[in-house]
């Protein structure tokens, strides 16, 4: 899922301070699971902002709403009848949700309430780690199911580099060396000989390098 982290409340206060009527808009998907922008976080942020502005003597209307998804027309339509009541929307969705809401409600300023971080997994409560960079051309079949693009600091396709020590990465002793993990897994799978197959030069055009991407599925379009 998409992992996000809450923006510091000081930063949000600066962002919203000039808007009198504010809607804080949560999202029920990824940001709920990573506890950055779901209904709970909307409630807490709204309460904190209300108190802050009351204390500062500023009159503000701060409302709360959480949609099933902000990356879908269908759910975004649910606020069409109320959107005009607000001077701005503070979206706690990922960058996708913020933008999609902005596209839909062109005349309402949209502010991000979270920092969208990466595609990752819920490793344990309160710990999310990156697993994928959406390169658009998956190599996991060749790397023992461990991604060198998202998990190696240098994206080395034929690793490990000379900085791998005791199973850890040169940039941080707490970070596993992706290539150590790959080799360990290949060994466990009885496929260590595959290590010597040289990974070809990667076509990065399916990644960010190729410009904004699009998936078109005519078979499901109606």
């Amino acid at each position: 899922m998409i992992i996000a982290s809450k923006k510091p409340i000081e930063e949000i206060i600066q962002e919203v301070k000039d808007y009198k009527r504010l809607l804080i808009l949560g999202c029920n998907e990824c940001v709920t699971v990573c506890e950055a922008g779901g209904k709970k976080e909307v409630e807490v942020l709204a309460s904190a902002l209300r108190m802050h502005f009351i204390k500062a003597g500023k009159e503000k209307k701060i409302d709360e709403r959480t949609l099933e998804r902000q990356c879908d027309h269908e759910y975004l339509e649910e606020i069409r009848d109320v959107i005009d009541q607000y001077d701005a929307v503070l979206s706690l969705a990922c960058g996708v949700g913020v933008q999609f809401t902005a596209e839909k409600y062109h005349s309402t300023p949209l502010l991000p309430g979270v920092n969208t971080c990466f595609l990752g997994a819920n490793e344990q409560r309160g710990l999310w780690t990156e697993r994928c960079q959406a390169c658009g051309s998956c190599v996991l079949a060749r790397t023992g199911g461990i991604c060198p693009i998202s998990r190696c600091a240098k994206r080395v396709m034929n690793g490990p580099c000379g900085g791998s020590g005791r199973g850890k990465c040169e940039i941080n002793k707490e970070l596993d060396c992706a290539w150590q993990l790959i080799i360990d897994r290949l060994r466990d799978l009885g496929r260590l000989d595959d290590y010597e197959i040289v990974a070809p030069i990667k076509d990065w055009s399916t990644e960010r390098a190729g410009g904004p991407r699009k998936v078109v599925r005519e078979d499901v379009q109606v």
Binding site: I9, E10, I13, V44, A48, L49, M51, H52
Partner: peptide
């Protein structure tokens, strides 16, 4: 933490 940040 939140109460500190909002000055309460």
């Amino acid at each position: 933490k939140i109460l500190d940040k909002i000055g309460v």
